[in-house]
Design a protein around this nucleic acid. Sequence first.
DNA 1: CCCTAACCGGAGGGTTTTCCTCCGCATGTA
DNA 2: TACATGCGGAGGAAAACCCTCCGGTTAGGG
Lengths: 216, 216
Amino acid sequence: MPVEKGLRADARRNRDLIVAAAQDLFLEQGVDVPLEEVARRAGVGVGTLYRRFPDRDALLRAVGEESLRRLDDLAEAAWREEPDAWHALCRFLRGSVELRLGVLPAKLEPHLHQRMRTGADLHEIRQRVIAGVQRMTEQAQADGALRADIGPGDIALLMTLQVYTPPNLPGEAAMARVVEIMLNGLRADAESPLPGTPLDEDDLRHYTAVRLPPAQ
Amino acid sequence: MPVEKGLRADARRNRDLIVAAAQDLFLEQGVDVPLEEVARRAGVGVGTLYRRFPDRDALLRAVGEESLRRLDDLAEAAWREEPDAWHALCRFLRGSVELRLGVLPAKLEPHLHQRMRTGADLHEIRQRVIAGVQRMTEQAQADGALRADIGPGDIALLMTLQVYTPPNLPGEAAMARVVEIMLNGLRADAESPLPGTPLDEDDLRHYTAVRLPPAQ
DNA sequence: CCCTAACCGGAGGGTTTTCCTCCGCATGTA
DNA sequence: TACATGCGGAGGAAAACCCTCCGGTTAGGG
């Protein structure tokens, strides 16, 4: 669907393999993994990788776009198919945590900051995801299912939740439990007060506005 | 208190600065940070670092020991000073998440695996922490404050909870909120069932028994 | 106050990692 | 079948990193 210009079938396939491999490795080892390792994991030569993605940044961008898109699809489907906002929210959070869909954009954010903020596509999808979260949050609260002292920013934060899972992760099941605990903590009944004030999108924006270290 | 042989006052001070810097950097950038960067952050020369810690492993060990010890102190104090097991558990979780005390040992685990499992000191403290968690969990459940379908392993996992916090973290407050949501989800009242079975120490042990990648 | 054992910093040489290009060979497609 | 498009990976240049070594500084007992 990104249509990605007419690529020969095998080229197209390789491109996708590379992005997938990069997603895995970025999660496991951080965004600094040697590109050669990405190539190896994808089962292609470095040449192929560099041909398709002239520099690391291009790859970062592709991965970012892909996961934002998936996140958006997830929110979209949840909202469309679940009976109410609360269940949509549950499904969304389960999905994004279990698939690590939230972590990736968060990790990428500092690097793609400029482009996220101004640049074309990325920025737009990002906005859509945020809007989706906000919609779910507000409606769930209106329905009295989600505790009131929560903001969309809190949800966005929870999206990026992770427990330290060593690279070989036997952790799926454990994560699922954590998510449920969390959801249980979000429910409206039996709430005990939270410290501070609900985070909204602006907090998130600020939270997100990090300046890269000396970087390079 | 590890007494660390008679070191001259300045040497001792530098040693501690180094460990502290390492803790920060390991958290922020992973355990592979250049040692030179650790030295810089600590405000000492590389020479000083290498004199005190012959190799990276020695530093890893020191950091691990330090954070395990702090974690143990935290559990100890919570158990001793709080009115009941539930509040002890709350305090413990708040502390370990907010101070990132849980993440560090988890991150170190793969590297110190051998030593954790068999070796002297590390192993012993680790056991103590686990025992503490177990004690709090069981008692809180006996008191009917903590939901029953939880195991010490779940708690241990929550301990290592993190939301992706970009290096410059304006995240403290946000984290605090997340923890409270978590705690609220752990309470016995109004529980909705969790998937799977409670994780116990053995799961944790297994979860933890990762083999380092090809690594080296 | 003075002396020295203990400690400090960081320049620099050697090694390892990472980047990225380039080109002969393979393969999809018309 | 023909050839444009795509592939792999060897290899040279550059960067990052490790760790030692030594001239200069300092803590703290006598």
